[in-house]
């Protein structure tokens, strides 16, 4: 245990403001990862002729991106002004960059998914959708990893101590979590004969997530403390257990349908817990002035101020 740091504050009040974001945002982080990973799996399944995995992944990607878009708009103070995001393109604003990535990603995912449910497509468009599905799916796959990783920059590019101080590892935690979730989703819905790539991707993602999270603990210093306490700590412990159990289950029983489904569900739940845990740890780190003052004082002492 780290000894209790001594610091001065103004009546113990926060210096920073925690983000005004509700649970919409961690849900968005999770769903964006699931969508990005599923777009990749869908394109891979398409090219390697695995129709059931392709179908599950494409439809999963569309569902996830649709829900994440709804979460994003719902969280705005003025949802009716969502389109104001499209009046500028700003590389200094990860939210602006993300909006444009999603604007390109969404329609591609939509076309690829539409080809899976031709009866829902208006008759005159069916031929077009069928021909466009593969190129659209490949474009979605090209953008998918960006959808999964940019959200790490989105939260790291703030003054919120836990998010900012973990900016080096956070993109790796997030893409690992995304690969685990989308792999888990594929295992849940596709038959084991086709789900091999989903299993490998899930295990690889889970290992990357666990390893990057470990590294984040050490490099974030004092700002890593909220990752262990309270609600965030409980969520992240659950995430670790679920991710580990899902990965082990996949390795040992991935070829059994019930075990594959259970492991897939565990990986999905683990990924969601990761995002909610990191989100709430950041919120907590902004509310306690300790995480603002102590690291800044240490930084000043190192500089010799």
């Amino acid at each position: 245990m780290v000894p209790e740091a001594e610091f001065t504050s103004y009546y113990g009040r926060p210096i920073l403001k925690a983000s005004p974001w509700q649970d919409d945002i961690p849900a968005y982080l999770f769903l964006g990862g699931l969508a990005g990973g599923s777009a990749l799996l869908g394109a891979g399944a398409d090219l390697s002729r695995r129709p059931a995995l392709r179908r599950a992944s494409r439809l999963g990607a569309l569902g996830a991106i649709g829900l994440s878009f709804a979460a994003l708009v719902h969280d705005l103070g003025r949802p009716s002004r969502f389109v104001n995001m499209l009046r500028v393109a700003k590389p200094t604003s990860p939210m602006s960059v993300g909006t444009w990535i999603l604007t390109a990603f969404g329609p591609c995912v939509g076309i690829a998914a539409a080809a899976e449910v031709p009866r829902l497509v208006p008759r005159p468009l069916r031929g077009l959708v069928r021909r466009a599905a593969r190129p659209a799916g490949l474009a979605a796959a090209a953008l998918g990893p960006a959808v999964a990783s940019y959200t790490a920059v989105l939260i790291a590019d703030t003054s919120t101590p836990t998010w900012h101080e973990s900016y080096r590892e956070l993109p790796f935690v997030f893409v690992g979590s995304a690969a685990a979730a989308s792999g888990g989703f594929g295992m849940l819905l596709a038959p084991v004969a086709e789900a091999g790539p989903a299993r490998r991707s899930a295990v690889g993602g889970a290992l990357l997530e666990l390893a990057a999270s470990q590294r984040m603990e050490t490099s974030a210093g004092l700002a890593a403390e909220p990752l262990h306490t309270g609600r965030a700590g409980a969520l992240l412990r659950a995430s670790q257990a679920l991710t580990l159990a899902g990965a082990v289950g996949t390795l040992l029983g991935g070829r059994s349908r019930p075990l594959a489904a259970a492991s897939g569900a565990a990986l999905l739940a683990g990924s969601a817990c990761t995002r909610f845990g990191i989100f709430h740890a950041g919120q907590e780190s902004a509310r306690d002035p300790k995480y603002t003052v102590v690291p800044q004082r240490e930084r000043m002492a190192e500089r010799g101020d």
Partner: peptide
Amino acid sequence: KRAALAAVAMAAGVLGAF
């Protein structure tokens, strides 16, 4: 830079799984 690196790693990993 790190997000781009992570994205490339993810693409390589998932496609490599095929």
